[in-house]
């Protein structure tokens, strides 16, 4: 049981919930950029929430399912097809027949998409995770044309042709709201009141030079009243560093473990998946909230996803009566 990469995309890697417990060695956590989309894709195929998925960018790969496969795509909104003949909806469970080819024809919105396969990929974890460490190319997998990725469980489709479930799930993230919430960082108080106000009232644009390590932003220049030299401390996902040129940088999944730039804030955990789906040129505006508020947003998001996971599992029990043909 396996999938084959017929043509690789821009950056196709295996990712899970991340590799924690090794940051003291300088080994960063990695993991899916959009953990909400990862959980949604896993939920749709009945996997555990943290099962490793394939994270893809644009252009996306062409993938062949060597045997019958139950899969789902979440994250960016794309026009996907099976065998260049049938449209495949995102955020739905798909039952593909052996030999089917999945391709992505057009991207509408979003930066990354996620493919989950029922049963999960067969991988050798490195330091307890299947996330790809890009600097050492260890753990997970960076896929190239011709690569084959084994799947843990054999799936036999109950159908004679490729089918889709007739229910779908929706992302709990509100992409129409440009606000990204943050909690203040250690060096926030070093900024003058007027500069703080400017930061909160300005739109910031995602720079082209943004990647899995960090999102560079362009907007109103934010300067400290005097230059500060900081001894390096740990930094975490979401840390908003102020670069020497006065522009902010938000650390993402592949961030270094320590840093010495002023930390003006930290994007809340619940808003990282939203930020991860914004493309270069996308506008955001920062909004400050408290830590308890940030926690309450994270818990609410988690509860929403948990309910989704349970609902999907229940639906899967009577999948035969809730199925549609592809068009």
């Amino acid at each position: 049981m396996s999938i084959r990469i017929i043509k690789s995309g821009l950056l196709d890697t295996v990712q899970d919930q991340g590799r924690y417990g090794y940051q003291h060695l300088g080994i960063n956590p990695n993991g899916a950029m959009d953990t909400v989309a990862m959980r949604m894709a896993n939920a749709l195929v009945g996997n555990d929430a943290g099962e490793a998925v394939l994270e893809m960018h644009w252009p996306a790969p062409v993938i062949q399912f060597e045997e019958d496969t139950c899969f789902a795509i979440s994250g960016a909104l794309v026009a996907a097809q099976i065998n260049k003949a049938f449209d495949i909806p995102v955020n739905k469970t798909i039952f593909a027949k052996a030999g089917s080819r999945l391709s992505f024809e057009k991207k509408q919105k979003g930066a990354r998409l996620y493919l989950a396969i029922q049963g999960g990929f067969q991988l050798t974890p490195w330091l307890h995770s299947n996330s790809t460490q890009m600097q050492v190319l260890y753990g997970g997998a960076l896929l190239k044309t011709g690569d084959i990725l084994s799947v843990k469980k054999k799936h036999v489709s109950p159908f004679n042709e490729t089918k889709t479930a007739n229910w779908h799930i929706q992302s709990p993230i509100d992409f129409s709201d440009k606000h990204i919430h943050f909690t203040i960082g250690k060096e926030w108080s070093l900024l003058d009141d007027t500069i703080q106000q400017l930061f909160l009232e300005s739109d910031y644009q995602i720079d082209n030079n943004s990647n899995r390590m960090g999102y560079r932003l362009n907007g109103t220049t934010i300067l400290l009243p005097e230059k500060v030299e900081l001894v390096s401390t740990a930094v975490t996902r979401g840390t908003i560093q102020l670069l020497p040129n006065g522009q902010p940088l938000v650390l993402m999944a592949d961030h270094q473990t320590t840093g010495g730039y002023p930390r003006i804030g930290h994007v809340i955990s619940a808003d990282i998946p939203k930020l991860a789906q914004l493309e270069p040129g996308g506008n955001i505006r920062f909004k400050e909230i408290s830590i308890p508020e940030a926690h309450s947003r994270l818990h609410a998001l988690n509860l929403h996803l948990k309910q989704m996971e349970i609902a999907c599992k229940l639906r899967m029990q009577d999948v035969r009566s809730q199925i549609s043909d592809l068009k």
Binding site: G21, Q23, H24, S232, T233, A234, L298, H299
Partner: peptide, 17 residues
Amino acid sequence: LDIIPAYSSITIVYDAL
């Protein structure tokens, strides 16, 4: 989740959930 010592600081990364 992680304990990260640095020159003169130590950071504890925790699972808020």
